[in-house]
Every structure is written in C-alpha cells, then in structure tokens.
C-alpha cells in the first residue's frame, strides 16, 4: 500500500511539473487535470470514497471550465525572456514554505497513526445519534452542519461575484439589443 502511495505521488509531481513548464496551454491544462485524477485515486486508496467521488466529478467540470477559458484566445505560449526577479521571489517563498514545514512537521503524528480524539467519539456515536451510517455525512450535516451552511454561502458568493464580473453590459443596453438572441434575457427581467 505504501509503495502505491509513493508511485501515485510521484505521478502527481511529474504531472504538476509538466503542467507548470509546458509551453502549450491546452496540454498544461490537461496535465493539471491528470494531477487531479491522481489526487482522486489517492483519496480512494486512503479510505475516503466520499471525496474520491467528489474529486473525480469536480475535476471533470473544472477541466471543462479551464479549457473554456483557454481555447478562445490565441493559444500561443507567451514567448519570454527569463524573468529573474519573479523566479527569485518564487524561490524565496518556497524557502519560507520549507521553513514552515520543518517547524510544523516536528509536531505531527507519524503517517498511519492519526490522533483522532474527537473523531473516535464521532465514529462510535454516528449511527445512534444521527441515524446516518456514513460517518462523513453524519459529520457534515449533523455534528458540523453550521460549518456546511457557511461553506454553502461561500459557494453562493463566489458564483454571484463571477456573474457580476462576467456581465458585460447593463440591463438597459441588453434591452436595446440582442434580447432575442438567446431568449432568456427577457425572461430574466420579468
């Protein structure tokens, strides 16, 4: 099992390197998608089928969105001289990350031996207290439902702001032209 994790992780690292360094934007997006599917396989083998399902599906949709954002433009890579300033800045931030990681790893439990103080209580109580057999469902919609409500509102806000950004013209301009084109914009104003 451990060897499998390492192989998958290596696959994801290679995929990420390809996604970042390749010149063609379409292959870059698809390599990022490969990393996402690797993550979902990893979730599956780590004993988390719930999020494995979610990750696969979300990956499909995010690939569609990214390809949509990429392909309409001219797809040539931006030809460039090496920009040394931003590279150095990036490396400095990675240095910060490594420092933080070394500091944080000292307090972690070893891989395969989680702490599980609250979780043990959740696991033994889920079926009786919430009636749900799936402990993850029991946690997100009963023990920690308030948290889920907050997450739903975050999703709502992000969708709303995307609409605000994407809207090209005001309502009056839309009334003036191309209302008939999709037939939905009139309905929106009712």
């Amino acid at each position: 099992m451990n060897a499998l994790f390492h192989v998958l992780m290596l696959f994801m690292l290679i995929g990420a390197a390809v996604a970042i360094e390749t010149k063609n934007m379409l292959s870059s997006v698809i390599a990022a998608g490969a990393v996402g599917f690797g993550v979902s396989l990893m979730f599956l083998f780590l004993g988390a089928p719930d999020i494995a399902i979610t990750q696969v599906i979300v990956e499909v949709l995010s690939l569609i969105i990214l390809i949509r954002a990429t392909t309409f433009a001219d797809n040539r890579a931006i030809e460039r001289k090496m920009d040394s300033f931003s590279t150095v800045t990036g490396l400095i931030f990675i240095g910060f990350l490594v420092m933080a990681a070394v500091w944080a790893f000292q307090d972690l439990t070893p891989f395969g031996e989680p702490l599980m103080r609250v979780s043990r209580r959740y696991l033994s109580g889920t079926a009786v207290e919430t009636g749900a057999v799936n402990a993850v469902s029991g946690i997100i919609l009963d023990y920690r439902a308030y948290d889920t409500l907050g997450e739903a509102i975050v999703l709502f806000t992000s969708i709303l702001s995307a609409f605000v950004i994407l809207r090209r013209r005001g309502k009056k301009d839309i009334e003036a032209e191309d209302t008939e084109e999709f037939g939905i914009l009139e309905q929106e104003q009712l």
Binding site: T54, L61, I65, A69, V118, L123, D147, E151, V154, L166
Partner: peptide, 30 residues
C-alpha cells in the same frame, strides 16, 4: 476506521474550490 473529520472538511472545500476556480476563470476572461 480512518479519521472522518478531515474528510468532512475537505469534501466541502473541494466544491468551493470549483466555485473559486470559476471566479478566477471569469476574471481571466474579462
């Protein structure tokens, strides 16, 4: 069983990641 608590937190974070990705794509298009 494995720890269900991080799974519950990550589950929502994945879907929100999709929402923020769409927001970023919208900004890039603009």
């Amino acid at each position: 069983a494995v720890d269900p608590l991080p799974q519950a937190l990550v589950l929502t974070s994945i879907v929100i990641g999709l929402g923020t990705l769409a927001l970023m794509a919208a900004q890039a298009i603009k």
